[in-house]
Write a protein that binds this DNA or RNA. Structure first.
Lengths: 146, 146
DNA sequence: TGAATTTAGGTTGCGCACAACTAAATCGTG
DNA sequence: CACGATTTAGTTGTGCGCAACCTAAATTCA
């Protein structure tokens, strides 16, 4: 267990993740500015483009976010006219988030954004996929420590 | 450029980084709770344990954070009695952040924390180092796109 | 030397994250 | 069926991140 002792932040895995995540989010900030949404809002849109409609807790499961984050975020997407929020008839506890036509239309910009992001990494697609899966596996292992 | 088109968030590199970063920070939250500091505060302490004393902009360069984040963060560390803040005599624009004895003492807990974090990744040290350097390189490439 | 520029740090405002808490609806068991 | 436990969202409060803006001090250089 040689020298985990006092590594500088630059050589620690968590700082690499923290720093890389913020760098990538900054890239998204530029790309998403014309759409008027933030990166976490874009993540919610990605799920909705796939499902058409989701409950708050389904979005929370997909994005690993709780209602304290999602409730105000989804209200902002509603204020932008991209989604509607409404209580389920079957179960009044549940809030269904549904894309509006404007929200669906926005999907047209997604391919261009994804392409720009991949280019920004400077990695070929096969390496990108490999790195992605390693990081996702790491996240899951850490998350599952309760 | 096969299918960057509409991948779900779970298969995108940025979401992996974002999710992994939050998982790891959550782990640090548990480990740092006894010390009463947050992960970003811990990062500042790591730099100060190495240097003894730094200016705000030096900390900003190391951690890639601006004064809008660091100024209030450092005031909180000062309120906790871990650092002192004072204008440089040579250059009145510069604020020097210096460890207090209590701040230096806290260094004793660092090895245990680093060990717990490495264990939480579930990776052997050589793989951890390899992954860290790939992610750090990615972050730097993205950051350097201006 | 004195005006323009640069640099260092701080403030404000907004949007996450997350803990802790609340209210309402539903479920499960006796 | 009753009633306690669980589930679902929302609210509040704190601490980041970051853009935009501000002030003061130092530097440049005409």
């Amino acid at each position: 267990m040689a020298d985990t002792q006092m590594l500088p932040p630059e050589q620690q895995i968590c700082f690499a993740l923290y720093s890389a995540s913020r760098s990538m989010t900054g890239r998204y900030r530029t790309l998403l500015a014309p759409l008027g949404i933030t990166y976490p809002q874009y993540l919610a849109m990605l799920v909705l483009w796939e499902t058409g409609s989701s409950t708050v807790s389904q979005l929370g499961d997909r994005l690993q976010l709780d209602s304290g984050t999602l409730s105000p975020l989804l209200k902002r997407l509603e204020a932008l006219g991209l989604v509607t929020r409404g209580r389920s008839a079957r179960d009044e506890r549940v809030v269904e988030i549904t894309l509006t036509p404007a929200g669906s239309d926005m999907r047209r910009y997604a391919p261009h954004i994804a392409e720009q992001i991949c280019a920004a990494t400077g990695l070929p697609m096969n390496e990108l996929v490999e790195l992605q899966s390693q990081i996702a596996a790491l996240a899951q292992r850490v998350r599952e420590l309760t």
